[in-house]
Write a protein that binds this DNA or RNA. Sequence first.
DNA 1: AACTATTGGTTCGATTATAGAACCGGAAGG
DNA 2: CCTTCCGGTTCTATAATCGAACCAATAGTT
Lengths: 261, 261
Amino acid sequence: MSSKTVMKALNILEMFSIHKPCWGLRELANELEMSHTIVHRLLTTFTEKGYLFKNPDTQKYELGIKFLELSNVVEENLKISEIIHPIMKKVALESGESIVLTLLDQDEGVFMKIVESDRQVRFAESIGKRSPLYKGASHKVILANLPEDHQGGIIQQGIDSKAEEIESVSVFLQRLAIIKQQGWAYTSGETIHEVGAISAPLFDYQNQVLGSLSVAGPAYRLEESNIEMTATILMKYCLELSAVLSKVVFPTRRNYLFEKL
Amino acid sequence: MSSKTVMKALNILEMFSIHKPCWGLRELANELEMSHTIVHRLLTTFTEKGYLFKNPDTQKYELGIKFLELSNVVEENLKISEIIHPIMKKVALESGESIVLTLLDQDEGVFMKIVESDRQVRFAESIGKRSPLYKGASHKVILANLPEDHQGGIIQQGIDSKAEEIESVSVFLQRLAIIKQQGWAYTSGETIHEVGAISAPLFDYQNQVLGSLSVAGPAYRLEESNIEMTATILMKYCLELSAVLSKVVFPTRRNYLFEKL
DNA sequence: AACTATTGGTTCGATTATAGAACCGGAAGG
DNA sequence: CCTTCCGGTTCTATAATCGAACCAATAGTT
């Protein structure tokens, strides 16, 4: 059993996004179809604690500095700045493209960290973006390395929501098998228009997939260049990274949703 | 009036720090002197929503990926990655030392972002650290540029907690006046042992201090080098940064605590 | 200037979610 | 085998929450 009050409170927090970072009291209450009284109480609570910040000029609320504080603890837990980030930089230099760290969370993939290349394309907007595992190289390479009994449920979700990536279950499973066997995936434009990606999986100390690293760039540039060579470099670093991560005991951040079924 | 339930919930979150990132249920309940039943309910709520993650091996809880997602929204709001970070990198290159971004929040200073130099000293641990404004160059330079009626309250807090930095109010105020006038502050070892810092203030679109930028490094290296020259460079960039920030409307994240008194 | 429609914020009694003692089943230790 | 810890659950008196009705202030309209 979970706390209804806190649940409502957290729902409020989730309304603050890159695309809508500032909310007025009434505006937010209407959107959530909640009484403005309770939204007000929750907003003040968060503000008192530093999780929200009330802009004194506009009277509107936005996310507070507390999230920067706590995110730093998470980064430290995940050894992101210490271990993962340096390797991402290396790959970025060698490939000249942006490198994306995707992590498996619940039954979705989340874009967690991006090292930008000097070149045009910027992905910063995409950080935090969640999407199902059947879409895009970074996600598919995770799905491909998941235990087979987990794959079924996720693919079923894709069929239920009529994902165009899955024409037939058997063909899709075959593709996943190939991805798992060769150790990397390539797609173009599946998650972001005109952006291609080459991805390789990361494993934890129990050899469970915990995420992936991707070389991402404009589709035309990745097509012209040697995809297989880039994939080989990427895989080398992913293996190296997995080896280090397995030593610091870095558990896969997965909820065993499908085990319960 | 704020929500007691959510307040308790947020108190739980704050127990997760860099120094103690993993908590067991009972352990946490004892520490907070709360019934383990309610702690359990709150932990499950947070876990369901992705704010906490239960390590399936140890059964212990740690902060979840949600904080990385939301912190990215905050960074975008504050234009950190877009505007502030690039300038920090520039200063880091020119000075060869680490650059620290401190923000004013409530009536404290928070180390928000650190660009590490290639050299030995690492400050990553300090990110998110809060401390009162009378301690350390990065914080003092903020205090010095605060309205005088705000300064009084903060200095009083310092005296109440017997801060060794304040021997006498009048001398301390004089020092602050000098810092404000010359535009930068220098201290050594006040916040972190054997670490010195040169700091200059940042202002928002209404010319209120919103934080500071600091060049930080081992005390001996900052002493031997030319402090004034480093300060001049730093001030130049801080002015540049303030000018840009004032255009994007970046409000000072301050609660007007002392106005209410 | 008066009227209306917003806004953020507050009050207070009926309702409902919460708090916490007592409980379970498992694991670790003696 | 017993004890003690652990994470997790159940149940009801009780305390916190909910929300209609309420301010006061601001902005736009007539």
